[in-house]
Amino acid sequence: MNTISTQDADAADLTSVMKLSERGWLSHLLRSQEFWIVVAILVICIAVGIMSPQFLSVRNLANILQNFCFIAILAIGMTPVIMTGGIDISVGSTLGLTGVSLGLLYSNGASFEIGLIGVVLIGAFVGLVNGVIIAYLKLAPFIVTLGMMSIVRSQTLVVTNNQVVYDFGPAQDMLIAVGAGSSFGVPNVLWAVLVLGAAMQWALTMTRWGKYVRAVGGNEHAARLTGIPVDAIKVSVYVLMGALTGLTAVFLVGWLGAATNALGQGQELQVIAATVIGGANLLGGFGSAAGAIIGSILIEVIRNALLLAGVNPFWQGTFLGVFILFAVMLERFRTARS
């Protein structure tokens, strides 16, 4: 069929065009949201470090590196959701439900593995319900997950009957070791962030699924016309979000040593903030796992720095809010210029 012949001149053009675009990695870096958030983190660290040297102590930095991880895993899961143009505000509640379910499974004698698999499945199920309603009934993700947020939080209260679970039966030692322990000098939960972040980044850039997630967020109608299974892709991102929420619950409950029904309350805002600060666009189409992780670090650094600087903790929300607005404006500025 290709009877239109390619001339030699065109072939030469072709290679020069390819080279030209490969040279642009520096400008690419300067235009990336992740880069500027890293700069912001470094500036805050240096500034706070000068004001209160305690901030840069190994102990405090280790503390930050442990604490940001829970938000980070959730933000890694939130990235593809937001990239499809969706949102999941039920994550905080799901974290609560999976957390107390984990506690109840363990206090009733479940093995570590059974509990782990159990809560990942419970999280995935919540995500499945969200995803199916959003994709097939075509209801707005915000409203669907708002309803789910309420249902799941209420179920968390129902199943625990307002009790705190801190007896984890035979799985106790393993749970604490996983949630609070380290391997090769790095907290286990940080390993999880690194592995999940790398896996998500790879999935988003190197697999069909990742490309379709992007396409659905970019132009759902076009994606449908080209035969992409749009609805299945949408369901998949919510299921994945739910499953990762269940996994986070295992680390978080292991770290805290207790499962309370307030677990995860209000956390959805931090997760969404981290994802958006890291460059995900709420209109869909853009986002990266690396950005989500960096955004989570920024949030934890702000929280920690304000505490150490002795700022009234009531101010935390103000600073976080300012950074969200700043990140959105930065994104607007970047896309407008390029």
Binding site: K211, R214, G218, N219, H221, A222, L225, T226, G285
Partner: peptide
């Protein structure tokens, strides 16, 4: 299609 079938972000 005139403008419906491309993804701007790809």
């Amino acid at each position: 299609y005139q403008d419906l079938a491309l993804c701007d972000n790809l």
